[in-house]
């Protein structure tokens, strides 16, 4: 047991922090991010990636959340994971090297209108060419490859005129779109049975990456809250000298720390294939609630200024809420966890 980062991991985290300091305000940080090699962290070396682990990717995502740096990194890496685990050698050769360098980006289309969450069965048929509409797909204009969840398993769709894009204006800063497929040619990604296993893993990885990004945002919100509580004076003293304010900050610290170590442990479990389901679902369900508490405190400490978009707090609040609403709500994950810890009907 050792919860300290290794020297290499610390260096990676520092590099990512330095990147965020330089590029947080770039209109498009992707060209700079391509040079970092992060898009290939989870792609094996034989396909042009660096074959690192989820822990490394989590450290990068956590740093990016502090910006927040808005980029297609997480969806593109998630698409690469699906191709890595379920793609034929041809599909892997076609897509993994370019996804690993970031020359192309990918995304994963899961949700459709009427689905409760990403874990619900997808109505879209996977028989033949794809027809139908996916919503809330992480999107940038030059996405080249889309992994699509259908009722017959995963499919790969190359970007073409058969995919119509309607941009959303969602809660979070990351651009999202509704994609309407009209007889879009699609390739099978694994058998129907394999697909279910691969999809569950893809969603787990995606949830932990999104969690790390939200933790970065929460840490930044805590820093802003401490700054504000230190510098804002009322009644002739810094408001942070009032315990009612200071204790909110202490509770934020305690919640962010808990989320961070739950996320690190989930990443470790994914890397080591050790009780990953229980680790991911515990992290997601704890963090869903913890993020609410953290941002409730952050807004309360900031007063009305935190509601004004000229202050930066709202950007982090959006990251956290978007995380909570994605990849399974608290109730769903607690139900999954209840089974994992042994609750069930007795014969």
């Amino acid at each position: 047991m050792n919860l300290e980062l290794s020297d290499e991991q610390r260096l990676l985290a520092d590099t990512a922090r330095a990147f965020v300091d330089r590029h947080a305000d770039d209109a498009d940080p992707w060209p700079a991010m391509r040079d970092t090699g992060w898009a290939g962290l989870l792609v094996p070396e034989e396909h042009g990636g660096s074959g690192a682990g989820m822990t490394e990717f989590v450290l990068v995502c956590e740093a990016l959340g502090r910006g927040p740096v808005v980029s297609p990194l997480i969806p593109s890496v998630t698409a690469a994971l699906a191709l890595r685990w379920a793609g034929t050698p041809d599909l892997q050769d076609q897509w993994l090297p370019t996804l690993a360098t970031g020359a192309f980006t990918g995304t994963v289309a899961v949700l459709e209108a009427g689905m409760r969450d990403e874990w619900s069965p997808a109505p879209m048929s996977g028989l033949g060419a794809l027809t139908g509409t996916k919503v809330l797909v992480p999107w940038v204009p030059d996405v080249a490859v889309i992994v699509v969840v259908t009722s017959e398993g995963l499919r790969v769709v190359e970007r073409s005129g058969a995919v119509r894009v309607h941009d959303h204006d969602p809660l979070c800063a990351e651009p999202h779109a509704a994609l309407t497929f009209q007889q879009a040619p699609a390739e099978r990604l694994g058998s129907t049975a394999d697909s279910a296993v691969v999809l569950a893993r893809v969603l787990d990885y995606n949830a932990v990456a999104r969690l790390a990004y939200a933790i970065g945002a929460a840490e930044r919100a805590l820093e802003l809250s401490v700054d504000h509580a230190t510098n804002r004076h009322q009644f002739g003293r810094p408001i942070g000298t009032f315990q009612a304010v200071a204790h909110r900050c202490a509770e934020m610290r305690a919640d962010v720390d808990a989320c961070r170590y739950l996320a690190y442990r989930a990443a470790w479990a994914l890397d080591h294939d050790a009780d990953a389901a229980i680790a991911v679902t515990a992290a997601k369900s704890f963090a869903n609630d913890a993020m609410r508490r953290v941002f409730l405190h952050a807004h309360q400490v900031h007063g009305a200024m935190g509601f004004a978009t000229e202050h930066e707090l709202h950007r982090y609040t959006r990251v956290a809420k978007s995380f909570e609403l994605s990849l399974g709500g608290t109730t769903r994950h607690r139900d999954r966890l209840a089974t994992e810890i042994g609750l069930g009907s007795r014969p």
Binding site: M1, N2, L3, E4, D257, A258, Y261, L262, R265, A282, S285, F286, D289, T331, H333, R334, D335, L337, A338, I341, L343
Partner: peptide, 25 residues
């Protein structure tokens, strides 16, 4: 009941990991 006990479990998990962090230090 499932929701309540799973919630407790996540809090137990968090408490344990935070003790382990202090011990790692």
């Amino acid at each position: 009941v499932r929701d309540r006990l799973a919630d407790l479990y996540t809090r137990y998990d968090a408490a344990r990991l935070l003790n382990y962090r202090a011990i790692s230090m």
